[in-house]
Each structure stands twice: as C-alpha cells, then as structure tokens.
Amino acid sequence: MTLLSIKYVNGTLEILDQLRLPFETEYIRIENTEDGWRVIKMMQVRGAPAIAMVGCLSLAVELLKSDFCSVPELVTFIHEKLSYLVTARPTAVNMSDSAKTFSRKASELSQSPGITVTDLKNR
C-alpha cells in the first residue's frame, strides 16, 4: 500500500497527518492558508519540500475560493498570506524560498498588459 503525503486535485488539498503515523492513517483537509499554517506549525506535515508545497497549495486553494476587486488587491493578498505562512516554521528554508518566488512571480505577472484578476489567479 502506498500512502501519498499530499493529495491535491482540482483545488482540493489533503495532507497525511504525520503525527498519526505509523499506527493510524488520517488525512487532513486544507481549506485555506490558516489550515496550511496550522498543519505546518503543528508538524503534521514534515520535510522541507513538503512544507513548501503545502504552504503554497494552501494559498492556491484559498485563491480559488476568494473574490478580488482588482489585481493590486490580489497581489497584496498573496504577499500577506505568504508572509504569514513563513511564520509557521521560520527556519524552513524551502517555504521561505517558495514564498519569495511566488510573491515575485505574482508581482511580475501583475504588471503584464491587460492582466485580469482571473488571469492572475489561474496563473
């Protein structure tokens, strides 16, 4: 039997609760960045690459469910949520690096001529 530590399909994110292993197999559904922050902080997700993936995917899940009035509002939201996620495990280099890359990319894309909120969210 193979266990996936991270399941992401069509905007739905679940993580394998590392604290329950090896005696139990339980997945935790991540609905937003607050959920992502909590599972990172509580060490329910472990390993630098997994922490970064869960952090960024928790933001992706939240972005898909949220509405924004403008591209600048969306970019500010992305920057704030990524900064927040880094505080869950400040020494997790992969999360910090991914947050910087994600933030930079959002800022760059927001400067594209004719970019819309929907375009930016999809990218």
Results as ranks from 00 to 15, higher is better:
residue 55 G to E: 03
residue 92 A to Q: 13
residue 59 L to D: 00
residue 62 E to F: 02
residue 71 V to I: 10
residue 78 I to H: 07
residue 59 L to M: 09
residue 109 L to D: 07
residue 32 N to A: 02
residue 25 T to G: 01
residue 46 R to S: 03
residue 24 E to F: 09
residue 13 L to N: 08
residue 31 E to R: 15
residue 97 D to F: 11
residue 13 L to T: 07
residue 112 S to Q: 12
residue 22 P to Y: 05
residue 103 S to R: 11
residue 35 D to M: 09
residue 109 L to T: 03
residue 44 Q to T: 03
residue 67 D to R: 14
residue 44 Q to Y: 07
residue 110 S to V: 06
residue 47 G to L: 09
residue 112 S to K: 12
residue 29 R to M: 02
residue 68 F to N: 14
residue 78 I to T: 11
residue 29 R to H: 14
residue 86 V to P: 10
residue 59 L to I: 05
residue 85 L to T: 02
residue 100 K to F: 03
residue 73 E to L: 13
residue 37 W to R: 08
residue 89 R to F: 00
residue 51 I to S: 02
residue 51 I to R: 01
residue 85 L to C: 08
residue 48 A to W: 07
residue 47 G to W: 10
residue 43 M to R: 15
residue 73 E to R: 08
residue 24 E to C: 00
residue 64 L to Q: 12
residue 56 C to H: 00
residue 106 A to V: 05
residue 104 R to Q: 12
residue 97 D to Q: 11
residue 117 V to D: 07
residue 112 S to N: 05
residue 37 W to V: 02
residue 111 Q to I: 01
residue 83 S to E: 15
residue 96 S to H: 10
residue 18 Q to Y: 07
residue 88 A to W: 13
residue 90 P to D: 06
residue 63 L to F: 01
residue 97 D to H: 10
residue 108 E to L: 06
residue 99 A to D: 01
residue 103 S to N: 11
residue 65 K to N: 15
residue 44 Q to D: 06
residue 27 Y to P: 12
residue 50 A to D: 00
residue 35 D to Y: 06
residue 25 T to H: 09
residue 60 A to I: 08
residue 60 A to G: 00
residue 72 P to V: 05
residue 68 F to T: 12
residue 57 L to Y: 14
residue 117 V to K: 08
residue 49 P to S: 10
residue 23 F to A: 08
residue 43 M to F: 15
residue 24 E to W: 03
residue 87 T to I: 07
residue 77 F to M: 11
residue 70 S to L: 02
residue 81 K to G: 14
residue 117 V to N: 10
residue 62 E to H: 01
residue 38 R to D: 13
residue 80 E to R: 15
residue 64 L to F: 04
residue 51 I to N: 02
residue 83 S to A: 15
residue 85 L to M: 03
residue 29 R to E: 12
residue 70 S to Q: 07
residue 20 R to N: 09
residue 15 I to L: 01
residue 107 S to N: 10
residue 81 K to T: 12
residue 58 S to C: 03
residue 24 E to K: 14
residue 20 R to V: 13
residue 81 K to W: 09
residue 85 L to V: 01
residue 56 C to V: 15
residue 108 E to P: 00
residue 36 G to D: 09
residue 106 A to Y: 02
residue 109 L to A: 01
residue 62 E to G: 02
residue 49 P to N: 06
residue 40 I to L: 15
residue 86 V to F: 09
residue 82 L to W: 02
residue 66 S to W: 05
residue 87 T to H: 09
residue 19 L to M: 13
residue 63 L to A: 02
residue 25 T to I: 15
residue 102 F to S: 00
residue 74 L to Y: 10
residue 87 T to N: 14
residue 89 R to I: 00
residue 100 K to A: 13
residue 16 L to C: 02
residue 112 S to L: 09
residue 24 E to H: 10
residue 42 M to S: 14
residue 47 G to R: 04
residue 51 I to M: 00
residue 83 S to P: 04
residue 53 M to R: 05
residue 105 K to I: 12
residue 73 E to H: 07
residue 62 E to T: 01
residue 113 P to A: 04
residue 38 R to V: 11
residue 46 R to H: 04
residue 50 A to Y: 01
residue 40 I to Y: 03
residue 102 F to E: 00
residue 75 V to F: 14
residue 25 T to C: 05
residue 53 M to V: 09
residue 41 K to S: 14
residue 87 T to Q: 15
residue 48 A to E: 10
residue 113 P to K: 04
residue 88 A to Y: 08
residue 58 S to V: 03
residue 44 Q to A: 12
residue 102 F to L: 08
residue 73 E to T: 10
residue 66 S to C: 11
residue 60 A to K: 15
